[in-house]
Simulated assay, not measured.
Amino acid sequence: MIRCIAVDDEAYAVKIIADYINKVPFLELAGTTTSAIDALGMVQQGNIDLVFLDIQMPELTGIQFLKLCGSKCKVILTTAYPEYALEGYEHDVLDYLLKPVAFDRFFKAAQKALNYLLPAVLPPSNYTPSAPLPALPDASPNYIFIKGDSKNKFLKVGYDDILYVEGLKNYVSVFTPLQRLITYQTLRDLEAQLPQPPFYRVHKSYIISLNKIRMVDGHTIYIQDQAIPIGETYRDGFYKIIREE
């Protein structure tokens, strides 16, 4: 087994990576943290093989972490900023995952780690497993948990039920055919949790489900009876996607 930790200053991002780790039979989740300094302490204890590491963290950047941990473990970077990829590879990272991370892309990175670390994690030659490994998962989760109106309340919403999402400062409204759910979260944070496709940001205040589009007329998307503007910044990418569908 490859002993892993997930490190990100955003708790929801840590949860996503931790859930992914738990789905892969040859990975073992040894810990999670939102502090790069705490993660460095775990690595320095010498029993961590692989770190899934966010680059942009307040206490210690991912690049600084790489310099400090040296060869004690291997690292797979996770970030929303592709411009850091080259610098990461200069520090011998195994892979670079761009947020939001889809499970199939995560699994490819995990396989790359297995191939690299195989001699270190293989059991002795006379070892006989007591049971076969579980089958690999064949799909990512098809739902998301949205924080409710109390501390420990979370609402499970299927991706296929989401029509579109509207952001307003630190709140987002998630619209489904039956209800509107309001949660304290930024649109950017929620965007990182939603798979792309089918979800796509079309405006600074809107994320839509491509599957729910009824019509596109000029720079306006219609989902059911709701008219959603396409922001100028997002137009080229959006039109490219729908023309390739």
Rank of each mutant, 00 (worst) to 15 (best):
Y20D: 07
Y164A: 01
P134Y: 07
A192V: 04
Y239H: 14
L181S: 03
I16Y: 00
H219P: 04
A6Q: 03
G148L: 09
E245R: 15
P100M: 07
I144Y: 03
V101S: 05
V51H: 02
A85F: 07
I5W: 02
K240I: 00
A110Q: 08
L210P: 10
R201S: 03
A120W: 00
A102M: 13
T32V: 06
G148R: 05
G158P: 00
E90F: 00
P141D: 14
L94R: 06
P137N: 12
P197C: 08
D160P: 01
P177I: 07
Q45A: 13
I242W: 10
T220K: 14
K153C: 08
P123Q: 04
E87A: 12
M1N: 08
Y184A: 11
V172K: 05
T78N: 09
Y171W: 09
P119S: 09
Q45D: 10
A13W: 01
D160Q: 15
T183Q: 04
L168P: 00
F65L: 11
I17R: 06
E87K: 13
D54Q: 11
L53D: 03
I21F: 02
V172L: 11
G218T: 08
R105S: 11
A13Y: 02
V14F: 04
I228R: 05
I223Q: 08
K15A: 13
I182Y: 00
L29A: 03
N211M: 11
Q226L: 01
H219V: 02
N126Y: 10
Y12N: 13
T233P: 01
I48H: 00
I37W: 02
Y184W: 02
L122T: 10
K23F: 06
M42S: 05
L122W: 00
F199K: 09
E87N: 12
L187A: 06
K67Q: 14
Y239K: 15
T34V: 08
D49R: 01
G70Y: 00
E166N: 06
S150M: 08
